[in-house]
Design a protein around this nucleic acid. Structure first.
Length: 327
DNA sequence: ACCCAGGCGTCAG
DNA sequence: CTGACGCCTGGG
């Protein structure tokens, strides 16, 4: 069953650059598949799989959405999810007012106009993606997540192609961590090279152990629904209990997975950028940068982090801050 | 063509 | 605080 509709720009505040939002490498989910001018992804609406195809002509134009599914849906429910995922509930006009008041942030606007937080559509996938992103590159963790979906996620066929749901925690718990464990389980039926049905085979390296432990915690000690109801500070502490989750990853999960926009994830690049812009290039520790961001940027901290990074990348500041380019 | 040092965030020591 | 962790990248 196909359905199409538009989301007009008077339904959200400020510009929207869909391409930038999906493609800027935000840590919560891999970029959506681009085919025939539409971004594609399968999401769960009312517990049922629904393929979303989405595009927008320009910054001011409407979002065009086509859905494919064998199930019936309320359009309203699909719209609500799309609004969540692409940050359409965020008021960018107000954000830009805030950025304009800070000379260090004002230049980010022209580089990032219409860029929004690309929120996760699946909190558990966001957790595993964020753990996988630690000490890793964007393409590598994107590939890992895609492999996990193809190996262990339920497959659904739509007119526009095959899509997979990210496997649930119970499924991840059944998966062997590495080749050796897989070999033991099959009892010598295969040789080591044939063991490609384990976490390590997805290119996650030593993170396989964390991923399994995290999946176990989510089924036992940690209830995401409860974390979601906590205030930011308490939720941050709760997530730190999960193996593989440090301050940076916890903030990514809170920001992208739970929509807490006062989170300020600090990676090495944000640290360098903040030190350069706000501390005259003086070395300041990551935890201090995080507290500085939370204090200084408040409810806009998540957006400031996104805008500073993209701005630095596009303006050449990032290259300048690369250690070997510093003379 | 090939190799190997560098870099990413978290954990354990 | 420092080093180890796995893997890809990119400079030599």
């Amino acid at each position: 069953m196909k359905k199409d509709f538009k989301i007009l720009s008077n339904n959200f505040k400020g510009p929207l650059n869909l391409y930038l939002t999906i493609s800027s490498g935000q840590t919560s989910q891999p970029a959506w598949l681009k085919k025939n001018g539409y971004f594609h992804e399968m999401i769960i609406v009312d517990d049922k799989p629904c393929l979303i195809k989405i595009k927008s002509g320009n910054l001011e134009g409407p979002l065009e959405v086509i859905t494919e599914s064998s199930e019936k849906f309320e359009i309203k429910a699909i719209k609500n999810q799309i609004n969540e995922i692409f940050g359409l509930n965020d008021n960018l006009d107000k954000l830009y007012e805030f950025l304009l008041n800070d000379p260090k942030l004002e230049p980010t606007i022209e580089f990032c106009r219409g860029l929004r937080l690309f929120k996760a559509h699946n909190p558990f996938e966001c957790l595993i993606a964020s753990i996988s992103s630690a000490n890793n590159s964007i393409i590598r963790w994107n590939r890992s997540i895609q492999l996990m979906k193809e190996k262990w996620g339920n497959e659904y066929q739509f007119p526009s192609g095959k899509f997979y749901i990210f496997p649930d925690p119970e499924k991840i718990l059944q998966v062997p961590e590495h080749e050796v464990e897989e070999l033991e389980i099959c009892g010598g039926e295969k040789n080591l090279e044939e063991c490609v049905n384990n976490l390590k085979s997805c290119g996650v390296g030593y993170r396989g152990k964390y991923i399994k432990q995290a999946a176990r915690m989510v089924t036992k000690e940690i209830n995401f629904n409860e974390v979601m109801k906590m205030g930011y500070g308490e939720a941050f502490q709760a997530l730190l209990q999960i193996p593989g989750v440090g301050p940076k990853v916890a903030d990514c999960i809170l920001l992208y997975g739970f929509g807490m926009e006062e989170a300020f994830p600090v990676d090495i690049w944000i640290k360098r950028i903040i030190c350069e812009l706000y501390f005259n290039g003086k070395e300041v520790s990551v935890p201090k940068i995080r507290l500085f961001g939370i204090e200084q940027f408040g409810e806009y901290a998540g957006y400031v982090q996104l805008y500073l990074f993209h701005y630095a990348r596009k303006s050449g500041l990032l290259e300048k801050l690369r250690p070997r380019n510093k003379l």
